[in-house]
Design a protein around this nucleic acid. Structure first.
Lengths: 124, 124
DNA sequence: CTCATATATGAATACCTGTTCATATGTGGA
DNA sequence: TCCACATATGAACAGGTATTCATATATGAG
């Protein structure tokens, strides 16, 4: 996870010519804090991979263990495990252990919503 | 734009041991087509950058020209222009020309929704 | 026409990512 | 205890990405 953070140079409104000052200040007022934006960028980064999207979509309707997921997305166990780690780190999925199996599910409803709206956009 | 496409090896349910066959087939049935997933991954990829998220957030409430955007996100005109191209290519923003200015806005409401839900997830 | 301004873009470089391979951890069964 | 299985992870290589610099295009003013 290494989204480049936003470098707020002190030269802010200087090295470029501002045309619409009001709009610029309005936009600056509406900006979320840097930390949230960076974290959100990392979240989108983890979603920005077809295999991980397949995993998320598979988990949208049910709980699955790692080797079932590997079968669904047709990748190696290792690759899926690496993907799951990233998804875990961004709290996109969580899991419970049962014996030696790990059952994964989506972390919350935001995730399914993101993918649904994203697909709406894509298919419009 | 170059998300790796999903390689559907013919060995699908073979090289890994399937534990819960029903769940696996249910998940396979729910998968969107490869093309949509790849396109969606590319869309998230473009959103997976703090500076581009700043741009999107700035455009959520108003129309802005390129040099105003450069001031808001505190980057060079060139960097912003490159970012805008990617955002355009994924239909995240669109623009109108007025003289030598280009005024950018979000392409549709899905985009603002994605960022809003994403921030909800991040801040939960 | 000529110049200044607003924006776009190609190339190059430094950095980040995905997969594989090898191996580690941890659990249950014999 | 010893082995098989389910999962996790570090290292490494191939390929992709962000920014900068230089420059191109295109519009309006004079």
């Amino acid at each position: 996870m290494a989204s480049q953070t936003i470098s707020r140079r002190s030269s802010a409104l200087c090295d470029v010519h501002v045309v619409h000052e009001d709009a610029v200040h309005g936009a600056l007022r509406d900006q979320p804090d840097t930390e949230s934006l960076t974290y959100l960028a990392d979240t989108f980064q983890v979603l920005a991979n077809p295999t991980r999207l397949q995993i998320v979509q598979a988990l949208a309707g049910r709980e699955l263990c790692v080797c079932d997921l590997a079968a669904v997305v047709d990748s190696s166990q290792s690759a899926v495990s690496h993907h799951l780690r990233q998804l875990r780190q961004m709290r996109i999925v969580r899991y419970r252990k049962e014996g030696r199996m790990a059952y994964y599910r989506l972390d919350d409803e935001h995730i399914a919503a993101l993918v649904r709206i994203g697909l709406d956009h894509v298919c419009e």
